[in-house]
Design a protein around this nucleic acid. Structure first.
Length: 285
DNA sequence: ATGGGATCCTGTGAGC
DNA sequence: TGCTCACAGGATCCCA
């Protein structure tokens, strides 16, 4: 479900309560959501940060890492339906089904619980001994973060592939953080047809694409992300960016720029909505 | 190198 | 009301 803007906003909503807090106790309800654990063996409590003080949160693409003073790191990916939330102790969790892990936490302003909930279980948690291990095992395999990527670099990477530009942007190894909502929004903003081939984009188009990427993601973060159904931030608040979607979820409605009927097609097994008139296609076939 | 399909899961809404 | 089907914000695998 969540893409870069949702994770970035989530990070911002969790930092005020988690930074400097101490993990008193961890309850791992479903050990199999720890994806890099030894099969059949429970991960250690220390690996899940029990007894650790939280030093900082890091994000790369759609992944969020909780880094302890000791350097130990927990990397969280929310998949399609994952949720990471915090509630003060006297407040109930929003619901208890599909809650896979609960961290009892002592924050400077009182006790609370951090929880990981994920009905579909496409998400997961990865435990690492230190940030270097996290980078080596996971983040170095991802492309540059979409929010900070230089236009030049993005253009170079796209120019090296003959894939359709939408499929390429969804590939986290090429650039990290873009998912099915924002890729359509970005391509609309940049006026590029999603079926265009990466290596057929002229320099002007890839410049627009890089600008559009930053603009759309930043706007979305400011709106707290997009809540289609499930997504809420660490405190349970919904994102309002859906109101500003211009193509995602608007198939066969009029284009907000030229009033042409927006088209929906399948691309790489993902529903894709675009304006056949004002999004230019580079490269056929 | 790239595209397509199946797969991992549960929940929801539409249509009958 | 209850059933079946399609579809969903992600990602990885195998095969052509």
């Amino acid at each position: 479900m969540p893409e870069l803007p949702e994770i970035a906003h989530l990070q911002g909503s969790l930092e005020p309560v988690l930074l400097g807090a101490t993990v008193r106790r961890v309850r791992l309800v479903r050990p199999d959501i720890v994806r890099n654990g030894r099969p059949g063996r429970r991960p250690t409590r220390a690996g899940l940060l029990q007894g650790e003080r939280i030093h900082r949160l890091d994000r790369h693409g759609k992944e969020l890492a909780v880094i302890a003073d000791s350097g130990r790191a927990l990397c969280v990916h929310l998949g399609m339906s994952g949720q990471l939330g915090f509630r003060e102790s006297r407040r109930r969790l929003p619901r208890y089904d599909h809650v896979h892990c609960i961290w009892s936490i002592e924050t400077p302003s009182g006790p609370g619980r951090l929880f990981f909930r994920d009905p579909r279980r496409f998400g997961g948690i990865w435990c690492f001994g230190g940030p270097a291990e996290l980078h080596e095992a996971r983040w170095s395999r991802l492309g540059p973060d979409a929010l900070g990527v230089r236009g030049r670099l993005l253009a170079e990477r796209l120019a090296r592939t003959g894939r359709r530009v939408k499929t390429a942007l969804l590939d986290q190894r090429l650039v990290a953080g873009i998912g099915n909502i924002y890729v359509d929004e970005i391509l609309f903003e940049a006026r590029i047809d999603p079926r265009s081939r990466g290596n057929k984009l002229p320099a002007s188009a890839s410049r627009r694409l890089a600008l559009a990427t930053h603009r759309i993601l930043e706007r979305a973060i400011r709106s707290g992300g997009s809540t289609i159904r499930d997504y809420v931030d660490g405190a349970g608040r919904r994102g309002t960016y859906v109101q500003r979607h211009r193509v995602y979820g608007r198939a066969s409605l009029p284009c907000l720029r030229c009033e042409t009927r927006l088209r929906a097609i399948q691309l790489g097994q993902r529903t894709t909505v675009f304006c056949p008139r004002c999004q230019e296609r580079f490269g056929r076939g």
